[in-house]
Design a protein around this nucleic acid. Structure first.
Lengths: 272, 272
DNA sequence: GCAAAAGTGTTCTTCGTACACCCATGA
DNA sequence: TCATGGGTGTACGAAGAACACTTTTGC
């Protein structure tokens, strides 16, 4: 152990990464925290992260630490910036490179795989270790900023989502209310959404042999009786936390190919 | 020398800062580079910057290095991000925290105080040291992004500027053309510009005793004859690089107080 | 059937864009 | 006096905001 020494002519700070992971449970924005098991700040909540190895980039470090500590494999990890205040760590001089990442709704609802890792409502975040309170404020600001013009919302929802879910997400992040009809129109005319048609459940043939669009869901079920399909197999999302029933919501998918194509040609426009 | 050693149990990267300074000469966007006098990359151009001291933050380091190497005292230094590729520096593992800053037009036109520091046209930037080419691309992208919604243009102009100068700046950064009249309206209705009234040159009394707005500059000079004021003392900016005369341009100032106030109340809106 | 949520279209206002004339200036 | 650049207003069209009724569903 004694010979595990690394010497330099000038003092070097340690470099860590921290990862601010946001999620959405259908109602509120959440952030993933882990409880520190070691000093300093033992027992306090903090972002997943740790010391950068000498043979990995900060990005690699952030992904590795996130996987180790929370078992989350996330794409869309973006850099938030470096935090370098001289006294931000009581142990030694530590510069932290912070990232932020977005987790899909199912990962939030599933809870965390890891011990001592929990999703916190943004309003219920306790006092954090180090300068992580400050980091969180910066991260929230960046999330708000990014969602104004980038379709990052889809990274917080599952692959299929209802327009209402999407609207709830935007309202939760931006803390404003939208008119349902205008939101729908605005989203649709971006051209990056496609309908996840429920007809698919019944096979392609259905829409061909049944061109009558007036047909109700009830009628369709009759075709399949006496074994009607479980109509809500994919809608637990919109049922949870609901006190009253409502009409079944159409599901949509984010058309990433289309989005990339539009962005390439500078055709994409979305502003909130 | 031998005892100037700093030892750590785990390997630590070195941390440097680099500062990408943009300027505007009235026609084109410029970037400030220094020629490296030492290995590695001796003789190559690079951004001003250097190793972070153990008792300063990255921000302090960036400002210090910038002052040391270019004699520029800049405010509005914003972090661009950390660059941490494992092999980005041939000497040892180095993480660089990059900043970008904006210099006022007069500082660009005045040239650089420092030896071996030069303003380069963005199109004429040579191959840079380290990963600075990559940094530059990121910085340009961020500059373009920021100017879409933040009034950072004023930091690249002198305190008083004509609408045409401002338009040229926007056109140079965004590489698009605007209609003069629409640009004027858009800028004025943001509410963050105030006229730098030339009457001020003649004192407050003038506008009171001379309410006639039809009065021409010639008439005003007559009031002051036989020592007419030098009318163009403050307009060299709009004359430089001009092949033909034109009407004298009204000057404007950025009303920072008003802007801060509007931003505070979320009233400020500007989009390009 | 009832309460709650979702689907949908029209009008009005606002903002952005296109466009042309006159004036001030220096040569 | 002329060539150049700057100051300004209007008319049109597109996009956003306001707004209500009907349908589906679970209870």
């Amino acid at each position: 152990m004694e010979n595990e020494k690394y010497t330099y002519q000038y003092p070097h700070p340690a470099v860590t990464t921290d990862c601010i992971v946001f999620g959405f449970d259908g109602k509120r924005i959440k952030v993933l925290l882990i409880r520190r098991g070691l000093e300093p700040y033992k027992g306090r909540w903090a972002f997943p992260g740790g010391f950068m190895r000498i043979d990995e980039s900060a990005e690699q470090c952030a992904e590795r630490e996130l996987a180790e500590e929370t078992h989350l494999q996330l794409t869309h990890i973006k850099q938030l910036g470096a935090f370098s205040d001289v006294n931000r760590d009581p142990r030694e001089r530590v510069v932290s490179i912070a990232f932020y990442a977005l987790a899909k709704k199912s990962e939030v609802l599933g809870g965390s795989d890891a011990e001592e890792a929990l999703w916190f409502d943004l309003d219920d975040v306790p006092q954090l270790a180090f300068d992580h309170d400050y980091m969180l404020r910066k991260a929230i600001a960046k999330l708000r900023e990014d969602i104004h013009f980038s379709p990052i919302g889809f990274d917080l929802l599952d692959d299929e989502f209802s327009m209402t879910e999407l609207q709830n997400l935007y309202e939760a992040i931006l803390n404003i209310r939208f008119d349902r009809r205008n939101f729908y129109k605005k989203m649709m005319q971006t051209g990056i959404l496609e309908e996840a048609d429920d007809d698919a459940l019944y096979g392609v043939a259905l829409s061909e042999c049944m061109p009558n669009k007036q047909m109700k869901m009830k009628d369709i079920e009759q075709l399949f009786s006496p074994n009607p399909v479980e109509r809500f197999s994919s809608t637990e999302g919109s049922r949870e936390a609901k006190s009253h029933p409502g009409r079944k919501a159409k599901k949509f998918r984010f058309n990433k190919e289309r989005y990339d194509e539009m962005k390439e040609n500078d055709e994409f426009k979305l502003e909130f």
